[in-house]
Simulated assay, not measured.
Amino acid sequence: MVRADARRNRERITTTALDLFAEHGPAVSMEDIARAAGLGVGTLYRHFPDRLTLVTDIANTALHALRDHALAQSAEDISRWEVLLRVVRHCAGQPFALITSLVGTPPAPPSTRELVREVNALLTEVVEQAQEEGTMRRDLTPEQVVELLNVMVCRPGARPDDPLTTVLLDGLRARRTA
Rank of each mutant, 00 (worst) to 15 (best):
P163V: 03
R155A: 00
L149F: 05
E143N: 08
N60T: 02
V145L: 01
T16Y: 00
P107G: 03
P142M: 01
A34R: 05
V88Y: 00
L164C: 03
Q129E: 11
G25L: 14
A59L: 05
T14K: 15
R176F: 05
L98C: 04
R117V: 10
E76A: 06
I33K: 13
P142G: 01
T16K: 03
R67I: 01
A178V: 13
A37N: 01
M1W: 14
A4R: 11
A4S: 12
M30T: 12
E31D: 13
I99R: 01
A62D: 04
V41L: 08
R159Y: 02
G40T: 04
L102G: 08
C91Q: 02
L172R: 01
A178D: 09
A62S: 11
Q73W: 10
I99S: 06
E143D: 08
L123D: 00
N9A: 15
L115E: 15
A75G: 14
L164P: 01
M136F: 00
I13M: 14
V55D: 02
T53Y: 13
P49G: 06
L85F: 08
Q94E: 08
E114Q: 15
T166V: 13
L164I: 03
V151N: 11
A17V: 05
E125Q: 11
P160A: 08
N150I: 09
H69K: 05
V55L: 13
A65V: 04
G40Y: 10
A121S: 12
V116D: 09
A59H: 06
A17G: 10
I13C: 13
D139T: 01
P107Y: 03
D50S: 05
G38K: 11
E128I: 11
R138D: 10
I58Q: 03
D170M: 15
G134N: 07
N9L: 12
R117Q: 12
L149H: 01
H90Y: 12
L52V: 06
A59R: 03
I58L: 10
P160F: 05
T112R: 06
T105K: 15
R155Y: 00
L85A: 07
G42L: 08
P110M: 01
Q144Y: 02
G93Q: 08
E114A: 09
W81H: 02
T135N: 07
T165I: 06
D161E: 11
A17T: 06
R175K: 14
A72N: 12
R86E: 14
A36D: 03
W81Y: 12
S29T: 15
V28K: 14
V127C: 01
L169G: 04
Q73S: 12
G40Q: 06
A72E: 14
G171H: 00
I13L: 15
E82F: 04
D19N: 11
A36R: 15
F96T: 00
A65F: 06
H69F: 08
D139L: 02
N60L: 02
L149S: 04
T112N: 08
V103E: 11
G157H: 02
R46C: 01
V146L: 00
T53C: 08
R67Y: 04
Y45H: 13
L84V: 06
P109L: 08
E11H: 10
E76K: 15
S29C: 14
T141G: 10
L123H: 06
E133C: 09
E82S: 15
E31C: 07
G42D: 09
V126R: 11
S101G: 14
R86D: 14
E23Y: 04
R35F: 09
